[in-house]
């Protein structure tokens, strides 16, 4: 069955036609052309398709598009809408918290959300929140550094 759903993506209201068996990741990537959402496993293990669903990180390969009717979605593309990179994005670049970059959107997004909720996370809290995302290049140390250094900007908010 095909139906229309409405959702807010990165601040913009969208109406899309989706099939019942379509996944959120595919609607974001293929229909809305939001390519910052990546995937490496399609079964909830790698976390590269993480998006914020009503402010909560979820893996969009395990969510049906019809489920998010009326919801708000934020992807990495939604982070720097005011024309400037967010502090966490700057910190990722500066600390080299990226190599091939394929997992970077998911890590940036999840780190940003973590800092919004908890501006001064401990190393344990960072690990706890990010262990659902894989990076084969092994930038975990740099990611922790980037989060710690960006942390001061989130405290001011």
């Amino acid at each position: 069955m095909v139906r229309k759903i409405s959702l807010t993506v990165n601040g913009y209201r969208k109406t899309v036609e989706v099939k019942d068996n379509e996944l959120l990741i595919d609607v974001l990537r293929d229909k809305l052309k939001i390519k910052g959402v990546k995937a490496a496993c399609w079964r909830g293990e790698c976390g590269l398709c993480t998006v914020l669903l009503n402010g909560e990180p979820v893996k969009s390969c395990l969510v049906l598009a019809v489920e998010v009717d009326g919801s708000e979605i934020v992807t990495v593309e939604g982070l720097s809408r005011d024309g400037e990179l967010t502090p966490i994005q700057k910190a990722f670049i500066e600390h080299g918290a990226l190599q091939c970059g394929f997992c970077t959107p998911a890590f940036v997004l999840a780190s940003h959300q973590l800092l919004l909720e908890n501006p001064n996370p401990t190393e344990e809290e960072i690990k706890e929140k990010l262990s659902g995302i894989l990076c084969r290049c092994g930038t975990y140390y740099e990611i922790i550094e980037a989060i710690k250094s960006a942390s001061k900007f989130y405290q001011k908010k």
Partner: peptide, 9 residues
């Protein structure tokens, strides 16, 4: 159980 992002769902 699993990871914190999975636990959100």
């Amino acid at each position: 159980a699993s990871d914190s992002i999975i636990r959100n769902r």
